[in-house]
Design a protein around this nucleic acid. Sequence first.
DNA 1: TTCAATTCTTGAAACGATTCATTCTCGACG
DNA 2: CGTCGAGAATGAATCGTTTCAAGAATTGAA
Lengths: 336, 336
Amino acid sequence: MSVSVRDVAAAASVSVGTVSNVLNHPGKVAPETVARVQAAIEKLGFVRNDAARQLRAGKSRSIGMVVLDVGNPFFTDVARGAEDRAAEDGFTLLLGNSDEKLAREGSYLDLFEEQRVHGILITPVGEDLTRLGRVQANGTPAVLVDREADRAQFSSVSVDDVAGGYLAVRHLIEQGKRRIAFVGGPHGLRQVQDRLAGARKAVAEAPGVQLELIDTDSLSVLQGRAAGEALQSREAVHRPDGVFAANDLLAMGVLQALHMLGDIRIPDDIALIGYDDIGFASAAVVPLSSIRQPAALIGYTAVDLMLREAAAGAGFEREHVVFQPELVVRQSTSGA
Amino acid sequence: MSVSVRDVAAAASVSVGTVSNVLNHPGKVAPETVARVQAAIEKLGFVRNDAARQLRAGKSRSIGMVVLDVGNPFFTDVARGAEDRAAEDGFTLLLGNSDEKLAREGSYLDLFEEQRVHGILITPVGEDLTRLGRVQANGTPAVLVDREADRAQFSSVSVDDVAGGYLAVRHLIEQGKRRIAFVGGPHGLRQVQDRLAGARKAVAEAPGVQLELIDTDSLSVLQGRAAGEALQSREAVHRPDGVFAANDLLAMGVLQALHMLGDIRIPDDIALIGYDDIGFASAAVVPLSSIRQPAALIGYTAVDLMLREAAAGAGFEREHVVFQPELVVRQSTSGA
DNA sequence: TTCAATTCTTGAAACGATTCATTCTCGACG
DNA sequence: CGTCGAGAATGAATCGTTTCAAGAATTGAA
């Protein structure tokens, strides 16, 4: 059914080895032979069988990536950066979506292992990285994205989320806000923990400022809207006057709820700041203040580290790149 | 280096065939043997080599999908639906991003062919589908997504874009708008052509209404912003009073430009409507009217058709599912 | 004319899982 | 007591590509 090198070899009256050389080391083959083989390939419509190729090579030309949420523009931006770097070296990016679920994350890791992927980029759902450690021990380099852990074991590319949380809440406090609410969850996510830790730090430095936690099940617009509705249904005096959402999707949900259902003024009654600075943040009902992370660069760098680790082999010194987040002020916190 | 069935077989004192049976047809193996083999698998940390598996099987358990823009939530929603359907049958979705570029589309098709993918879902960049036809002829079913073509050759799942364009512009006209501008491009994209055709139809029905075309290089927020800035810099009398953008990203860009840079009132001075009804549309500065498409369902259905075609084999009667778009009115066209 | 040095080409041996025709083991039944 | 058959297990052959040691052909120098 499918055309193989054998068929091409026969059609061009050469050996299979020569066909393979034309494909992979054309310099080693006489020009006219190359032409003849290529004509045969063209004529027969030969397409390399990647499975056989990989079987022989022992490793694939793909890189596996698992993100928390493909619906979040932040992660698609990271993936884009990763894809760019991968393409530079002829690698393909396989993108998996864990949806913040351990089970889905696990099944992508299974898949990637079975595919003998060249390396793995992952934003892990939980704290437990033993599974990933095992993969790594078997020779597949893994790089943590947007998350730092056990520095000796995994390379990582991250942004200082504690600093980001601090920036966000300090900014709210500087705007005169005193009753701050942190909207986010699940708390198993390191991003959530760190951003909250930064928030706590900023609050601790400012006497008289209170911090309230409003938990969500995930970092989605829907969850944000639910949180916003909860706030909106409270009596005005019991509402916070500043809200820090763990990411922009949540923030946009909160914004929708507050703005559309209620008569709450933003930022006068409640100031709102998000995290990630996704492209849509600036186009929101009230343009959203946020903490910017260099998404594409994170992805690019992660693949870079991974490829370096793969090339270096066993005794590789793990690297850790930490970017600094940046405060972006828009109308949702600054009425002017 | 890597553990193979052979190693497992040796460790469990059985033959390789038995190990394979434990993996694939556990019913054919005596329970105690299954246990022994599984213990060996566990102990050695055996992971199936997918390349070898595929080589033998001749086809992979993956489905390839090429979309125009992963940054567009519409397509990630479609992909999500596709992934769901694929997962139901144990397939994996490989997601490629053509970025509206023929070259990138081509390299994904190459990749998918080499991977002997089970089937292909694609929103093609251009008009020329001969390449895709060849792939299809080689036994890999291809389903067109959000695009209908040569009905005998490819199955397709689409939305009636002409109807959608018609709905959008008729709505603008009903709001009393008379000088309509269509923002979109490149015109090589069928989506753009059809939506424009619908717009033309609506304009043709309404005496005295003019249609102006504002071309863009792609369907992105950035391009939309450029178009919006161009409009904004015109003298008021030369501006359109209704704008139909070929998708929501463009519309949001236009909105940003008009709203932030200028003193143009929306919808009073200019009414604006987009297409796709992405989640962010309702959270825009001015909540955006749009044409809704059942994104996830489109993806789900596309995989469904593809799997049916793959199962049926050669003499398969192509199917064509066409969904109807729906007008969603928000403040950007209806001041109330 | 011969020999050495290049430059090309060859074809068998891997890679690792799956398949399938065979062989082996029991137990039941006549 | 011999035979038959179901249930288990076996292992060689296979998928299609790449690699690599070895052979063939060509060139130039002596």
